[in-house]
Computed example of a mutant assay.
Amino acid sequence: MEEGGFERIKSGLLRFVEEPGLAPNVRIIEAPSDDASNLFDQTDYLHIDGGHSMYNAAEDVVLHAKKVVPGGLIIMDDVEWQSTVPTVATLEIGRRIRTFLHAKGEPHA
């Protein structure tokens, strides 16, 4: 990632949450997966963008996906990476994930 890229992305996320007044309903947790799992019991929306090793991707899902309420939403970054594909397949078996597609109908890369 380009220098300062992470800070720019995080700043954009914070604006996205604050400008429409969503901040009272959003909790952004920046912590290792096992630490973060103890900070909440349930959620309506879960965005997983953690480590991309097979172990890290599986750990994120094992620790957090069960906390998403029925009808809730799980977003997982980089689902097409070779190391995350097995975890995505596990979620698909449970019908817990759908892959977003580009307008052309191709998987999001």
Rank of each mutant, 00 (worst) to 15 (best):
V62D: 11
D35L: 11
T90G: 03
A31Q: 11
T87Q: 03
F40V: 03
L22I: 02
F40E: 04
V88E: 02
P24D: 03
F16L: 11
H108Q: 01
T90K: 07
A36G: 02
D60A: 00
G12M: 09
W81D: 14
S37K: 14
I97K: 09
N25P: 00
V26G: 06
A89P: 00
E92C: 07
D44F: 05
I28S: 01
F6E: 10
G4F: 09
F100L: 13
T84Q: 03
T99K: 15
D41V: 05
G12K: 06
Q82L: 13
P70H: 04
V85K: 15
G50H: 01
A58H: 01
V17A: 05
I29C: 04
V79I: 15
D60Y: 00
V17K: 04
E92M: 15
P24C: 04
G94F: 15
G51Y: 11
Y45E: 06
S53H: 03
Y45Q: 01
L13Q: 09
D35K: 08
T90P: 00
G12T: 12
S11H: 06
D44M: 08
V68Y: 05
D60W: 00
M54K: 13
A23D: 06
F6R: 12
A31G: 06
G94T: 07
L91E: 11
S53Y: 02
A109F: 11
R96A: 10
L46Y: 07
V62L: 12
L63E: 00
D34E: 14
V88T: 08
P20I: 01
N56L: 05
G12Q: 07
E30S: 11
K10Y: 13
G5D: 08
A36D: 05
G21Q: 04
E106T: 13
S33E: 07
F40W: 10
R95S: 13
P24V: 00
I75Y: 12
L46M: 09
E80F: 11
V85N: 08
K10A: 12
W81E: 14
L13E: 04
I93Q: 06
D60S: 04
E106Y: 10
I48W: 02
M54Q: 13
A57T: 04
E92V: 13
N25M: 06
G51E: 14
E30T: 07
K66D: 12
L91I: 12
I9E: 15
L39F: 00
Q42Y: 12
S53C: 00
H52G: 05
M1K: 04
V62S: 08
P32Q: 06
D44C: 10
E92F: 14
E2C: 02
Y55I: 02
A103Y: 08
L39V: 08
R15G: 03
G12Y: 09
Q42P: 14
D35E: 15
M54Y: 07
V61G: 02
